[in-house]
């Protein structure tokens, strides 16, 4: 068995590295650069029942060590994703995690029901944390009761395990995490972006047409690490960690905090080859950490009576 293979609900991962939703489209662009079968999994772009154009431009603004985006869940809609994008992805030997979104509970249920039937969709990622849409999205992710109810509804119809993507824009993320676990979530993915803004000195106005956007990139990593550290000690479902990952070292840090797999987001925009690079570097990092298998590292920062993990360069 490879030192990197991971078993999670619904997901048989060759390695724990996958591109994060919204940062990889449906894989077509990156397939021109490398073989997608080498990835642990692919989290495809959020899908809503109907096609969406998203927000007006500018949709991105750079920040120190990060970026703001307000794409607004642009996607070709459920039918096209089911009939074109997912069948196209079947040529690759890689499990797909389908990110689902909507404005109402019924929207989520509809998308979950259909996408979970696709043969290569091995898990769903419930997007209750998009900060850039007026209805749905984050509204479901900031209220524990709503989040729980929605998770339950989606679980009822989904034929594959359901992971819930959590928003960091809450005062107590543990409360939301526990609520969706009670609602039947099979796992968590965290964190989505942090709500932010930039203002252009020339115009005196926000740079983004949507005014606010989601902050991502290395500057949010400490927030993600802290939240995974807190949540992983209070739930018994696995966490796929994300938020500013740029290197194999970062992946290890997420595992130590409590993650069982890791997703790379913004860095795909900076270095489109980053996922295969990290996958290649991980075995050497594991050796330096004194671990035989990467799963040994999950939660090492807080687990009692565990062999101490330390870095031996």
């Amino acid at each position: 068995m490879s030192s990197l293979s991971i078993q999670l609900p619904g997901l048989n991962l060759k390695n724990p590295v996958m591109p994060a939703s919204g940062c990889f489209g449906f894989g077509r662009e990156f397939s021109q650069l490398y073989d997608l079968s080498g990835l642990g999994a692919i989290m495809i772009k959020a899908t809503t029942p109907e096609p969406r154009f998203g927000n007006p431009t500018p949709r991105v603004a750079e920040t120190p060590g990060g970026m703001l985006n307000a794409i607004g869940l642009q996607n070709p809609g459920l039918e096209k994703v089911f009939n074109e994008e997912l069948p196209w992805l079947e040529q690759f030997d890689v499990p797909i995690m389908a990110n689902i979104a909507g404005s109402t509970e019924d929207d989520y249920v509809k998308v979950a029901e259909q996408l979970s039937k696709a043969p290569n969709v091995h898990a769903l990622e419930l997007n209750i944390s998009c900060p850039n849409v007026k209805t749905g999205g984050i509204a479901f992710g900031t209220d524990p009761e709503m989040a729980k109810a929605l998770t339950r509804k989606v679980k009822e119809v989904s034929e594959v395990p359901v992971y819930v993507k959590l928003s960091p824009n809450v005062s107590d993320i543990v409360k939301i995490a526990r609520a969706v676990e009670e609602g039947g979530a099979d796992g968590l993915t965290m964190i989505n972006t942090l709500l932010g803004m930039r203002i252009d000195l020339m115009t005196g106005q926000p740079i983004l047409a949507n005014k606010t956007g989601g902050l991502s990139g290395p500057s949010v990593k400490p927030v993600a690490i802290r939240m995974i550290y807190e949540v992983s000690q209070r739930v018994s479902i696995p966490i796929i960690g994300m938020g500013g990952i740029q290197s194999a070292e970062d992946v290890i840090e997420f595992f130590l905090a409590g993650a069982s797999a890791a997703a790379v987001g913004t860095q795909n925009f900076v270095d489109p080859f980053i996922c295969p690079k990290i996958i290649e570097e991980l075995p050497e990092m594991l050796a330096k950490m004194g671990a035989d298998h990467i799963s040994e590292l999950t939660g090492r920062s807080w687990k009692k009576n565990e062999r101490l993990a330390y870095y031996r360069p």
Binding site: G22, C23, F24, G25, R28, E29, F30, L33, K45, P51, R52, F53, G54, T57, P58, R59, V60, A61, M67, N69, I71, Q74, P76, G77, N268, F269, P272
Partner: peptide, 25 residues
């Protein structure tokens, strides 16, 4: 010219409408 993120078509930062469907998808 448009503000870009990835430059390869993955991030959807630099989209524009088509003339035959100026308000559509």
């Amino acid at each position: 010219e448009e503000r870009m993120g990835c430059g390869i078509g993955a991030c959807f930062a630099c989209v524009c409408h088509t003339k035959d469907d100026p308000q559509g998808f």
